[in-house]
């Protein structure tokens, strides 16, 4: 964590900048003068539910969600590829949306529920097998990002057509060019899911 950050006094009133010696003093001031309660809790302490497991973490403001998931939690399914939001390799599912963890600040994710490729595999989702069967990978670096994006699609739209699949996966870059195999794999996974549900 950056040294400057730690030294910054946290007991400034966000509304009028008045300074207080203690956090309790600040809190009493805000309630009395600004009529609002409670004060936002100090930033940095967040709770994430990742692949069904709860984690409490103290994060620096500048840490991205990618850094927390990959470097701190050790989930290698999020990949750094472009690091600027242009490739989809760091995709996680957060509250149902496929989002880019490299362009998300972890400190803004308190209380969120997150899925990564590892969680999708552990849950036995048919996408994993269909990706393997259709050779939907070459070097494999971008593959987990496709898996998470495809899973988010199937959660919302269990029976997508080929065009919907391609539109959903359009933000995932693959330098090896495995693109044509993805719609096939996702369609097969959707069929398998449907069969599982009808049983």
């Amino acid at each position: 964590m950056n040294a400057d950050f730690q030294q910054t006094p946290n007991n400034l009133c966000p509304y009028c900048s008045a300074a207080f010696e203690t956090f309790d003093g600040l809190k009493a001031h805000v309630v009395a003068v600004h009529k609002t309660e409670p004060l936002p809790k100090p930033d940095g302490l967040i709770q994430l539910t990742v692949n069904g497991q709860s984690h409490k973490l103290l994060v620096a403001p500048e840490w991205t969600l990618y850094q927390v998931i990959h470097d701190k939690l050790g989930l290698t399914g999020v990949k750094m590829f472009c690091d600027r939001g242009a490739c989809g390799s760091c995709t996680v599912i957060m509250d149902g949306r496929p989002i880019l963890s490299c362009m998300t600040l972890a400190i803004e994710c308190d209380g969120k529920t997150i899925e990564t490729a590892e969680g999708i595999a552990e849950a036995g989702h048919p996408l994993i097998d269909s990706y393997v069967n259709h050779h939907t990978m070459q070097c494999g670096y971008c593959t987990p990002g496709f898996i998470t994006t495809a899973k988010a699609l199937l959660d919302r739209n269990p029976e997508p057509n080929e065009s919907e699949i391609m539109q959903a996966l359009a933000g995932n870059l693959c330098r090896c060019g495995t693109y044509p195999q993805h719609p096939k794999a996702v369609l097969e996974a959707a069929r398998t899911l449907k069969e599982e549900h009808s049983k």
Binding site: N2, F5, T8, P14, Y15, D43, P61, E62, T64
Partner: peptide
């Protein structure tokens, strides 16, 4: 990324106040 202070604003009033301060 270099660091910065960070505020998760709860209300628009609060957000505006913090911006005003900086």
């Amino acid at each position: 990324m270099r660091s910065f202070e960070h505020f998760n604003a709860r209300t628009m009033e609060e957000a505006v106040a913090i911006l005003g301060r900086y």
